[in-house]
Design a protein around this nucleic acid. Structure first.
Lengths: 350, 350
DNA sequence: CTGAAAGCGCTAACAT
DNA sequence: ATGTTAGCGCTTTCAG
């Protein structure tokens, strides 16, 4: 089998076959009006026949526009970022933008400038920074070549002045979960937080804390522990919490995966959910409805986050192109919702 | 706040500031030897100072090489494709290729030519077709502009002559699962298949069937049912199977998510796992080890699939570029492995 | 060692 | 309605 170079049919080829100028072919390709109907027809036939496809790179060189968005992501193992990505691809395809995907090796890597370079040298029109705020990685922002003036949308971080941020309101989520448990008559509500160097974890925890305090419940450091999002950590930490907080009658767990580990241990110890202990998770992963018992949890519309991010980014790009003054960048904090299932339903209240 | 156009510093700008020709700057950027040390030094300083970044689009136009790979994916909701993507990003970044990601709206959409066009007009150097073989979507291959001669690697489909395919050997997986249950003394092993229009499902099922027959066990249509990969379908279909196959003492389930639904129902009916019913899943998702009881399953190294795909694609691209005759395209069928956990361990055999 | 000229595939601005 | 010229940012000749 002989291997050939990739066939690249150019405007010039089409032009010479159709016996017109390159310009005319270009006009046909771009649906410009000033072409005689029969010429257009003939050119179109040649295009179809030889399988001509415009070279977007060449076009971008002139138009200074690549119709490509950079997406920087980290932690594809987790469900959240993944669903966001899903929303991004869908919205981008709809707007006819292509996506250049880069995955960071970790949440707090040092290679961001390399990533940024790779994206910018490929002339992306804008960037979605879909890396959650962990530790002080938000400080990266200062490293971003500001003078570069590339439109940028940040995801999953604390909204701040002068940036466009799209995120779920995790604080509200924490409040919803806790208020629901209180409403079911639970009074001693513990918490298993995600890693507290994550912004999302801190917000969820604060929602839990504030809600309890407002309800007149005591909150102490004996009432919560910290996991690492994994089912294994849920299993491990719940043991600790059971020891430290024996009166505990309900738990708000930072995500559904840890909640799975918690359920595992509670079963093993003969504790019944929701009778002995009420349980609420966070995320509403697909499996949550099939845990035993089905898990009450907080549902975030991550797909929508991705969609909003793309739409806002494109707005920024277009304003930028027009030289229009955008309104001050606005941020989006989207409220999650409560999904009530058996794990938190106490039949007889208090 | 005033918005500026994106600053684009070009070779020309650097050249005029450093007071050398464009050519010299280009040589410095590309580490060509023929530059006087002090000139090089001066140019490098200017580059650093003005933040020059080469325009890869312009470079690609000349070199006919974009150092970009197209990745077409479908069903990002499922864990499998996601982990593959993870492997792809890592391998691509290592090889200094960028990734252009396209997601199909469904496994059997008609829009493939559009997707293909988008990728080719952006001049990707090669394409990874990471869409599982579902229904007759493999026939897409015939639609691909063969004359285009773009290097292409297919994932998760039946290897075939003349194509480079990377896939997990699902048949072996099915055999492993079934043989393990037989080894534990289970004799009436049912099966919940994934959707049988998926190649992977058919392979897993065939592994189950062949292994049972070879062991002298009877296999009938009463012994299996078909789900749709979701936990909900596992829960629904197991009911059917329990009715149809009352002697059943073990089940091989087509994926871990359905196995979760199965566990749910078995608990509800007071059936103990593994004492009354042995259970083996497929995939080894992170949660599987924390099911109740922990689930025995078949682990596939999807990340490795992604890695191999990228490496093979790059080999194809480079052979293509050199005009070298590649050896006939070879396919890779990677064996999965068995992860033994409690759900299938019978203490006293027979 | 360095620069000038040509051109990758395309479009924008003028011609005619 | 069509063609010509110039040039996007870069690299590849080829001269000096």
């Amino acid at each position: 089998m002989v291997v050939h170079k990739i066939d690249r049919v150019t405007l010039k080829d089409v032009a010479s076959i159709a016996d017109v100028s390159i310009q005319t072919v270009s006009r046909v390709v771009n649906n410009h009006p000033d072409v005689a109907p029969d010429t257009r027809q003939r050119v179109q036939e040649v295009i179809a026949q030889v399988g001509y496809r415009p070279n977007i790179l060449a076009r971008s060189l002139i138009s200074q526009r690549s119709f490509t968005l950079g997406v920087v992501i980290a932690g594809l193992k987790l469900t959240g970022p993944l669903t966001v990505l899903n929303g991004i691809t869908t919205a981008a395809e709809k707007a006819r933008y292509a996506l250049m995907l880069m995955e960071l090796p970790s949440y707090t890597t040092d290679d961001i400038e390399l990533i940024f370079d790779a994206l910018l040298s490929r002339q992306v029109d804008g960037i979605i920074w879909a890396v959650p705020e962990v530790e002080d990685n938000r400080l990266w922002i200062n490293k971003f070549p500001k003078n570069q003036n590339i439109p940028l949308v940040y995801l999953t971080m604390q909204p701040q002045e002068g940036l466009t941020v799209v995120a779920i309101n995790n604080y509200v989520g924490g409040r919803l979960a806790t208020a629901h448990l209180l409403g079911q008559g639970y009074r001693h509500i513990g918490h298993i937080a995600g890693p507290l160097d994550w912004w999302e974890s801190r917000q969820r925890m604060k929602g839990w804390e504030d809600t309890l305090k407002e309800a007149g419940c005591e909150v102490s450091d004996q009432h919560w522990v910290m996991g690492d999002w994994s089912p294994a950590s849920g299993a491990e930490k719940i043991q600790l919490l059971l020891d430290r907080y024996p009166e505990m009658d309900a738990i708000f767990v930072g995500n559904d995966q840890m909640a799975l580990g918690v359920l595992h241990v509670l079963h093993a110890q003969g504790l019944r959910v929701p009778e002995d202990i009420g349980l609420v998770g966070f995320d509403d992963i697909q499996e949550a409805a099939h845990y035993w018992p089905p898990l009450t949890t907080i549902k975030q519309d991550q797909r929508y986050v991705g969609k909003v991010a793309v739409e806002e980014l494109i707005k920024l790009i277009e304003a930028n192109l027009r030289g229009t003054d955008m309104d001050a960048p606005k941020s989006f904090l989207l409220d999650p919702i409560l999904m009530v299932r058996e794990s938190s339903i106490r039949s007889g209240n208090e």
